[in-house]
Design a protein around this nucleic acid. Structure first.
Length: 263
DNA sequence: CTGCCCCTGTAA
DNA sequence: TTACAGGGGCAG
């Protein structure tokens, strides 16, 4: 589920509901999520701390617990949410925090690919935050011109830009009119500058959607989710020209695009 | 670069 | 039954 916009909404909701909350203890249910950390060590590190802050870096969530930082990554199907009673957690809980007030923060993850580890030091290898002022067109164009990756793989490369995933990479390239297979370094700087602006706009729009969706009781609601122009629409008509949307594989994952609008 | 792995649910 | 899923790390 989550790319930068959804992770941001998860963090925003956690901040609104649980920032400053004392943590009685942390329970690791699915041992694999702390790998290679020892689950008992992660549990012990969090017990009795206060959840001082919740930070997002790309798709990563940093839970600040006094001197301890826990690094959560939701991968494909993870979610972090506050529940009124920690005993009433969902079956797919990989881990949960029991707060002093009796509420819980649940790491729910049906597929179990998400991770929750101890972090010391900064997260390595992440590119600029696309919604921060430091993400300028100049820097983006320079990085792009130095790369020979296909445009979509470049956008999804967390070392180039942090937080973009399969959906928003495809959506940004559609709105910029760029073929996702095209080597990004061979695109004219002026078109790359346009892509930069589109990336920022697409992500900002998606953050708005995600906040609306996640701020409701019950959390995520399908009907209110962002409606993609190309993602997941293989064979359907392009919203701009009516041409059937195509699907190709890139980096082992599906890419959707309009062969007429995107060159 | 490709392919495989992690794991489970869901749809064709 | 197979394919695929909004992620990422690894080996070849």
């Amino acid at each position: 589920m989550p790319e930068l916009p959804e992770v941001e909404a998860v963090c925003g909701k956690l901040r609104a509901e649980a920032a400053g909350a004392p943590v009685r203890r942390l329970v690791i249910q699915r041992r694999r999520i702390t790998s290679p950390d020892d689950p008992a060590r992660v549990e012990a590190a969090a017990a009795g701390r206060t959840l001082d802050a919740i930070d997002r870096v790309g798709k990563n969530i940093l839970l600040r617990l006094g001197p301890v930082t826990l690094h959560a990554h939701l991968r494909m199907t993870g979610n972090l949410c506050v529940i009124p009673d920690h005993r009433l957690r969902p079956a797919a809980a990989s881990a949960w925090f029991e707060l002093a007030c009796g509420r819980g923060i649940v790491f729910e993850d049906p597929r179990g690919l998400g991770t929750l580890r101890l972090l010391d030091g900064p997260l390595p290898g992440l590119g600029p935050e696309p919604l921060d002022p430091g993400f300028t067109a100049e820097r983006f164009v320079a990085a792009a011109r130095a790369s020979r990756q296909p445009a979509k793989l470049f956008l999804m490369d967390q070392r180039k830009v942090a937080g973009i995933g399969n959906i928003y990479a495809a959506e940004a390239l559609f709105h910029a009119g760029i073929d996702p297979r095209r080597p990004i370094g061979r695109i004219a700087p002026r078109r790359l500058a346009a892509l930069h602006a589109v990336v920022v706009r697409v992500l900002n729009d998606a953050v708005q959607f995600a906040y609306i969706t996640y701020s409701r009781p019950g959390g995520f609601r399908e009907a209110d989710d962002y409606t993609p122009a190309v993602y997941g629409r293989e064979g359907e008509s392009c919203v701009a020209c009516g041409t059937p949307i195509r699907r190709v594989a890139q980096g082992g994952r599906s890419t959707y695009f309009c062969p007429k609008c995107q060159r």
